[in-house]
Simulated scan of single mutants.
Amino acid sequence: MKTILACLLVLAVSLPLSNASCFIQPLNSENSDIAGCLDSEKKLHKFGSQWRTDDCFDCSCFKDRIDCCSAFVTPVDYDKEKCISIFNKETCTYKTVEKDDHSKECPVRGWVG
């Protein structure tokens, strides 16, 4: 009983620390003759393959699911009154700059992702 409680405590503490920018998409197991995973754009990926989406998610194809996680981190702790964050889809990165002068970067104290 103590072991179960200890496991539940560890799980409860670790869940808020987990990466919330991942998701799993189960595959339809009814169609067993498919040779891979269909992504959201209906592109077929072979089992065991990996790819990056246009929205900067790194995905992996398994026989029962597609796993995807963000390929970027998001700035969360910066001066939001003075600065803005700008996402670059080409590099899958954020740049945090002053609102009035985009050539001046702002310090970021915390990232999520």
Rank of each mutant, 00 (worst) to 15 (best):
K2W: 12
K2E: 14
T3K: 14
I4P: 08
A6S: 09
C7H: 15
C7W: 11
L8D: 04
V10A: 07
V10L: 08
A12Q: 12
A12V: 15
A12L: 13
A12P: 04
V13L: 07
S14I: 15
S14T: 15
L15T: 05
P16L: 08
P16V: 06
S18F: 13
A20S: 10
Q25R: 03
P26M: 09
L27W: 02
N28M: 09
S29W: 10
S29P: 08
S29D: 07
S29I: 07
E30P: 13
E30G: 10
E30T: 14
E30C: 10
N31H: 14
N31V: 15
S32T: 09
S32G: 12
D33Q: 14
I34P: 06
I34F: 11
A35V: 12
G36R: 00
L38V: 10
L38C: 14
D39K: 02
E41A: 12
K42V: 13
K42F: 14
L44G: 11
L44W: 14
H45D: 03
H45Y: 04
K46T: 15
F47Q: 04
G48C: 04
Q50L: 15
W51N: 02
W51T: 01
W51I: 02
R52D: 07
D54A: 12
D54L: 15
C56N: 02
C56V: 07
F57E: 00
D58G: 08
C59W: 00
S60K: 03
F62Y: 13
K63C: 13
K63A: 11
K63D: 06
K63N: 08
D64E: 05
R65S: 11
R65L: 09
D67S: 06
C68A: 04
S70T: 08
A71N: 03
F72D: 04
V73W: 05
T74R: 03
T74W: 03
Y78F: 02
K80D: 09
K82T: 05
K82C: 03
K82A: 01
C83G: 04
C83Y: 01
S85E: 08
I86L: 14
N88K: 05
K89S: 15
K89L: 13
K89V: 13
E90C: 11
C92Q: 00
C92Y: 00
T93C: 07
T93H: 06
Y94R: 02
K95F: 04
K95L: 04
T96P: 00
V97C: 00
E98C: 02
E98Q: 07
K99C: 05
D100I: 02
E105R: 08
C106L: 01
C106D: 07
P107V: 04
V108Y: 06
V108L: 04
R109G: 09
W111E: 02
W111K: 07
V112N: 10
G113D: 03
G113C: 14
